[in-house]
Simulated assay, not measured.
Amino acid sequence: MLIENEFRVTAPVDEVWEYLLDLPGLAPCLPGAELTDDLGDGTYRGRVVTRLGPVKLGFTGTAKIIDADEAARRIAIHAAGSEDKGKGTADMTVTATLVPAAGGATTVEVTQDLQVSGAAAQYGRGMISDVSSVLLRSFAECISHNIAAGRGGGTATVTRTAKPAGGLSIGLAAALMALKRVIRRFFGPSTRP
Rank of each mutant, 00 (worst) to 15 (best):
G88L: 08
F59R: 12
V134L: 12
S133N: 13
L30P: 00
S82D: 11
G58P: 00
L30C: 02
G81Y: 12
T93R: 12
R51F: 01
Y44K: 05
L114H: 08
L30F: 14
G118V: 04
E109H: 08
A33K: 09
L57E: 08
L26H: 04
G118Q: 09
V108R: 03
D84S: 13
T106M: 03
D38G: 02
G25W: 00
I66K: 00
T106S: 08
D113M: 09
G58C: 10
T97K: 12
L26N: 10
R47N: 08
T43S: 11
R73C: 10
T89S: 10
L57A: 10
I128C: 03
Y19V: 05
A96K: 14
R47A: 06
D41T: 09
V131F: 13
S82W: 01
I65P: 10
V108G: 03
S133Y: 01
D91K: 10
P28F: 11
R74S: 13
E83D: 14
K87G: 07
R125S: 13
E18C: 00
A76V: 09
K87V: 06
E34F: 00
L21P: 00
I65T: 15
R73T: 07
G124L: 11
G118H: 06
A72T: 07
A76W: 10
I65H: 09
G86P: 07
D113R: 13
T97H: 08
I65E: 11
S132K: 01
T111Y: 00
T43N: 05
K64M: 02
A27T: 08
A121F: 03
K64W: 02
G32Q: 11
L23R: 04
T111N: 05
E18K: 12
A71T: 15
L98Y: 05
Q122W: 02
L20E: 13
G61D: 10
S129H: 12
V48I: 15
T111C: 00
A71E: 15
I65L: 14
V49G: 07
T43P: 06
E70L: 07
L35Y: 04
V99Q: 12
A33Y: 08
P28K: 11
S117T: 15
L30M: 13
Y44R: 02
L21I: 04
T95D: 11
A90L: 12
R73V: 05
I75T: 12
T106G: 01
V49D: 11
D67P: 00
R45C: 01
A119K: 13
G32C: 10
T62Y: 03
V16R: 02
G86W: 06
I75D: 10
T60N: 14
A105C: 02
